[in-house]
């Protein structure tokens, strides 16, 4: 049997959800026997491949790179899991939204609150521009499974992945869907 192709994607999040995924410890070894990891921030693969079966998407859509990548991810993947509160609700990444334009935040973070080298990063083509508003993933593309939590608890990730490995699309409930 061909192994399922698994990908993990890191958009506007703190990487905590990926850390939580790595918290699955020895179960990751079991997982590795059942899936092929074809794209991930923990693997050195530059281009998101075609024909991905399952993808975990961490983080909100916060900048132009995120926006471009998530569309590609959707086009090239069967089951897209909105992974963690940032992906599901915007969460901490979207804390800037009530204030509108991101400019005051860049000023506050990189100029007023910085101790050294006070400058707003500006490197067109390298540093992606921020979007006006941070969006949850399902505001931009269709999502198949929601796995909230900040971060998503490792056992919850496992529960969802185990169902998917058995060919079911999980419909999660109870504490598996608690925000926060």
């Amino acid at each position: 049997m061909n192994k399922l192709k698994l990908a993990t994607v890191w958009l506007g999040g703190c990487s905590g959800c990926h850390m939580s995924f790595l918290d699955l410890d020895e179960w990751l070894i079991d997982l590795a026997t059942q899936v092929e990891l074809v794209y991930s921030p923990i693997a050195d693969i530059k281009e998101y491949p075609e024909g991905v079966d399952i993808v975990l998407v961490e983080g909100a859509v916060a900048n132009e790179d995120n926006l471009e990548l998530i569309k590609k991810v959707r086009d090239r993947s069967k089951i897209l899991i909105s992974f963690g509160d940032c992906a599901v609700t915007g969460n901490v990444t979207a804390l800037r939204n009530p204030f509108g334009d991101p400019e005051p935040f860049l000023q506050r973070s990189y100029l007023e609150a910085a101790d050294i080298q006070n400058q707003i990063p500006h490197e067109p083509g390298i540093v992606p521009a921020l979007l006006e508003q941070v969006k949850p993933v399902h505001d931009v593309v269709e999502v198949d499974v929601y796995l909230p939590g900040c971060p998503s608890n490792a056992n919850h990730i496992r529960a969802a992945l185990e169902m998917l490995l058995m060919g079911e699309v999980p419909h999660l409930s109870g504490k598996l869907i608690r925000f926060g």
Partner: peptide, 22 residues
């Protein structure tokens, strides 16, 4: 509120977030 969301099976919000300034 969080408990009620769990009770109602709310895994995501499908209305547009208003992001009010409060």
């Amino acid at each position: 509120l969080q408990d009620l969301a769990v009770e109602m099976g709310m895994d995501s919000v499908h209305l547009n977030y208003q992001f009010p300034q409060r």
